[in-house]
Write a protein that binds this DNA or RNA. Structure first.
Lengths: 188, 188, 188, 188
DNA sequence: AATGAATGAGAATTCATTCAT
DNA sequence: TATGAATGAATTCTCATTCAT
């Protein structure tokens, strides 16, 4: 009996690469099947539809990252440390699978929906952390959305610079510099 | 004889909005024509194809912004001032036409190509400015790509936060804070 | 006041050339207007539709040729002379306006209809002449359709060879040789 | 899995008939699909476009005929016999598949291109045969293009007369008469 | 599970014709 | 008469999905 798990993996990997390169709606089933070296119909053995594939790819990756990020942050006593572990996790995850990460980054432009309504998105999660820190007087109050935007911008753009080949060293190598830049930007 | 300028303008505006909202390939000619209140065939009197429309929209906007940005920066004597005028220009431009700007931001995900090979992209342009500043000993040498990434990340994410409705005040109101964050992030 | 006669002539000439080169249905109004250097709408000042233009071009040329051919043949006393004057007329007409003639030749492939039902086509006309000649015992009876086909084939292919540039001398120069070939082919 | 060979055959046959009857550009995909009893999209599983279908139909038929014609002629020792076998082959082929043959005849009006540059066309091939015969003193020298035109005219018009229903007996029945007419026309 | 031919709805595009100027 | 923008129906083509094998 042929091993369907293998085919599924291949389909996921190929779809991911194409979705990132061309966008979900510009990627055809044929593109994916050709790249994976299987017939077009085969995809429907594993996924109900193209959209389900796109969505499931996103949801799986997203939930793991979001959950872990939250767990890591929750373990740390203060904002400074929370930010450090989050940046570190993000960088390591990125290095581990840049394409998958990239897919998460562009997913917002492909109107993929986050599964559970209550699911936190990165921005709102960071806003929460800042509000908490303000409450605890860890740092002087200011607009938490502005702060979240700064952090996300610095970290995400670092990833994007890799995507476009402008920076070739690993994200992990820049962890300290990125955290440092964040600290400087937010004056804490 | 009828004057097509008006129709063309309407088509551009409507296409822009839809491209930003749904992405180029998920936007249909019908969507655009309906929103513009013209027949589908009319679009082809103004553009050769949907792709040409998407591309032309991008190129026109991009070239204007890129050229102005460069001109403004060139007038200033040092990096600090160059960064200030660039951030200011970006913020004001964004406020003036957020949708158009948003189109520029997401364009990379729609494989739109920058027309002239030699055309500067924002990242490389900032790298150039840093190299120049290093040469003039304006600030201690470090990876200019890292610096460019920081600046772009802070500014672009500020725009993206507006797009997703997380921050509602104008970009112009944040000019000083953004420049301040950049200075802090880069320790100059 | 602008002179519409001139425009009409130009349109006819340009349409003719394009119809011959690409076929009627593959030629667009835009093609014709562009080649004639007028606007698309202008064509409709002179013709009701593209089909009317194609048809009128055909009918005008056809009727003149058919009528003259018949008149010339009717004046001659016997088949041999009838054939001679018809070949001569055909050759001279071809040299005078090869494109127009070519249009007549291909018109059958564009389902253009001959205006009057009773209008004779070349084949049937020649068949009539042969039947008459058989009646008058000018030559031994045989299938007149076969004979008509031979004559038409020899003459038309001579024209087609010019169209495709295989023979460059005028048709008029070959009149005697063509008549000679016809005589030989039909053994009269 | 379904076998597409049958569908492909059906599409080819139906397209051929329609192309001959209405011309390539006046035949729609819908026409073809309807006649073949398949969905419109099915055509695109077998051909890249309508034009590719038209072209491939032509090229396949043309190459087979051209190759065989050449092979047959090459086997014969002199022009007289070469002409005989060629006329015979042409007549029998025509009877075998008049529609396909007709497509070859009208192909020139649909700007279909012969695939290989060096591919012989009928006219040039016959010119070659005559030049060879002149060299071998088989018959007195004269313009080989004129001779080729005579032969083609006689044979092709015989076919065209069938197409338009003017002659209903088979081409094969006329082989000897056609060869005879050719001999007479060329006085050999 | 896998295949790829077939489907058909819908998207992109063409183009004869109309019409405001 | 002339213009060319606008129309919209018809056409070509695409592609997610189904289905016989």
């Amino acid at each position: 009996m042929r091993d369907g798990t293998n085919t599924r993996k291949k389909l996921e990997r190929c779809a991911l690469g194409l979705f990132v390169k061309k966008g979900v709606s510009a990627t055809t089933i044929k593109d994916i099947a050709n790249k994976a070296g299987v017939a077009e119909g085969t995809l429907y053995r594993h996924y109900e539809s193209k959209d389900e594939l796109a969505q499931s790819l996103f949801t799986n990756a997203y939930e793991e990252v979001a959950t872990t990020l939250k767990q890591l942050a929750d373990k740390e006593p203060n904002l400074e440390k929370k930010i450090y572990v989050m940046v570190k996790f993000f960088c390591e995850k990125y290095d581990e699978d840049p394409i998958l990460f990239n897919y998460l980054l562009i997913a917002q432009h492909n109107q993929l929906k986050i599964s559970h309504e209550k699911e936190i998105n990165a921005h709102e999660f960071i806003v929460m952390l800042f509000n908490e820190a303000f409450r605890k007087k860890e740092l002087p109050k200011r607009d938490p959305h502005f702060c979240a935007s700064i952090i996300l911008g610095i970290v995400l753009q670092a990833a994007i610079s890799r995507v476009y080949g402008r920076i070739s060293r690993s994200m992990a190598e820049d962890i300290d510099d990125l955290v440092d830049a964040i600290k400087g930007a937010l004056h804490y």
